[in-house]
Design a protein around this nucleic acid. Sequence first.
DNA 1: AATAATAATTCTATAATGAAAGTATTCTAG
DNA 2: CTAGAATACTTTCATTATAGAATTATTATT
Lengths: 146, 146
Amino acid sequence: MVAKSEHKQRSQCPIACALDLIGDHWTLLVVRNLMFLGIHEYKDMLKMEEQISSSILSNRLRKLQNDGLVDALPHPLSQRRKLYFLTAKGKDLIYLMTELVIWSNNYLETVAIPEDKKRLIEHAPDRFIEITLKELDAWEKQYAAS
Amino acid sequence: MVAKSEHKQRSQCPIACALDLIGDHWTLLVVRNLMFLGIHEYKDMLKMEEQISSSILSNRLRKLQNDGLVDALPHPLSQRRKLYFLTAKGKDLIYLMTELVIWSNNYLETVAIPEDKKRLIEHAPDRFIEITLKELDAWEKQYAAS
DNA sequence: AATAATAATTCTATAATGAAAGTATTCTAG
DNA sequence: CTAGAATACTTTCATTATAGAATTATTATT
């Protein structure tokens, strides 16, 4: 069952269309978990600092899969567990995500992020992206996804 | 009066903090209007293709001003009109917005945007950003903002 | 003085969210 | 083999946000 909001397309504008997929309070935090934090399981997402509720997490994971940003594998250690991971479409949000972090670092005083990582993102975003993509590749090889 | 959602800070994560400011269905469309479409007035925003409602537009403009992304000037032709424009903090979302458009162009089939503009954004995003920032500068000079 | 334009605000029905509890399935320990 | 725990959700319900329509306050125009 898919909620109403997951259907509507408000216009043909590229920004509006993208916001229909990722423009809400939670979706990009799920992407962040998969992209930067190495969190690939439902139970671990439930523990995220921002305290997502179980129902919202379930909805967002389903929507991300329906929209082709995320896919899932059975966990090798247990059939009842799943491993979520970003598809190429989802991984390609890394450029957007990196700009988001750069903007945050520039304008939002309170963000907690180690100084050295902050400096890397700020002064060599391409390198940061390269490193992150390599980590995602390594994860995929380990689990033979893609 | 400011709604509850305009206050909460869920964590110190740069992505979460940024989403507290711009992570919803409408905020970045208002930014788009100011950044790319030359729409600076309330009445013109009401006409946007995506059909924002008057109350939501009012809320978002107030929130954008509270968060320092947008400022307003009295319209030179009428005291009852206002001219909204992006602050430096708001304008600096241009890198994020450009990546959003690039991603949309790559993955969302249906987006309507002229082919030549699509090509410019795709192959020379820096040039696209430069041109856009110049247009915003020209607007500001005209109205002597900033 | 009457009418229109503008930037909101108010009202109300509907939709989304959040918190807690419940369910179905699979694993694990005895 | 069975009892209990773990996992991935789903359901329920109270609260909050949103959308659309109507209204208001102010300023401009005729």
